[in-house]
Design a protein around this nucleic acid. Sequence first.
DNA 1: GTCTATAATAGGATAGAC
DNA 2: GTCTATCCTATTATAGAC
Lengths: 187, 187
Amino acid sequence: MPASLRSREEAVAHLLAVFQAHGYDGASLAQLSKATGLGKSSLYHHFPGGKADMARAVLARVNRWMVETAIEPLKGPGKPARRLARMLETLDAFYAGGRKCCVLGNLVVGGGRALVQAELKAVFDLWIGALADLAAEAGVPRAQARERAEDAVAMIEGALILAGGRGDPAPFRRALRRIPEHLLARD
Amino acid sequence: MPASLRSREEAVAHLLAVFQAHGYDGASLAQLSKATGLGKSSLYHHFPGGKADMARAVLARVNRWMVETAIEPLKGPGKPARRLARMLETLDAFYAGGRKCCVLGNLVVGGGRALVQAELKAVFDLWIGALADLAAEAGVPRAQARERAEDAVAMIEGALILAGGRGDPAPFRRALRRIPEHLLARD
DNA sequence: GTCTATAATAGGATAGAC
DNA sequence: GTCTATCCTATTATAGAC
């Protein structure tokens, strides 16, 4: 991999951290510049569209990460319960056990929403679809599998909100523990 | 009630709408001025601390509303299931069936977080406590009642995120429908 | 209490040297 | 590709008349 690509990846990782913590409107170029170690002009060299481009790059990275590490593994070989468990472990690590904010939730507030609405919907649909497929494979009727998948995603997002709002990561970890039975139980 | 108090209440209602739609950092004084129909100087007359004061006033209003219309009714007379149903109807109306953003979620992003962290935790704790009391009254063991109450709040918040993210209010309404059985079932 | 006018600053974005 | 210096605008906030 060329050094330029690698450094861009690193820059996007830093941008992600700023947007995750401060949201779209709350992230200033000064913060983004400091976090990446690049001057403003250098940022504009890599992201000609300015802050909007940076947010899109961050969202693209989240999408890719989500597909590669959370959604694709759901389709791999092995027992459904085991595949689900691996996805939940990945999520747990990404959100530091509930101590980090929900990237998507924070990016979607204010000026960020218009920029990312379509891509955000795509991630949610992909995620829900993959979970529903898994539940169906485990023997849950189709319609019920879809509803349970939506519930699972909602529980994860809601638990992140609750964890952030109360400063206590416990609800998030508990939500992750409860999801397997909710999603895969055959009644 | 004096006219001044009434007009302040009205102003706060308009401020709420702006913060709910744009978040703390995304809401500008120009927008807040236009929404209330007051000039900037008039806003500073009512809220000397500027935008931060306005956000706190909005949060105080949300807190009061939450206690009066969602939490107190949970303690009233009547069957627990019926009281819960009334609270859920109130929430449904407030969030327009899932078509409006979560006020708390949007206010807490970016610069708003530091302002409201303590009050946000208080609302969540009040809400969860009231729901847990209700479940306990309905015969659910204490520890389980508490967990189910946290799950219920997380489901509501998560469903609002999902509804906003996908532009489809269905998950929110379905979450409201599912909560009674989740919270009150005796197994 | 509300307004007009204005300050003071921070924010996003660009120019041009190296 | 990165930097320094700069521009322009929007934003927060204040002064002072009415």
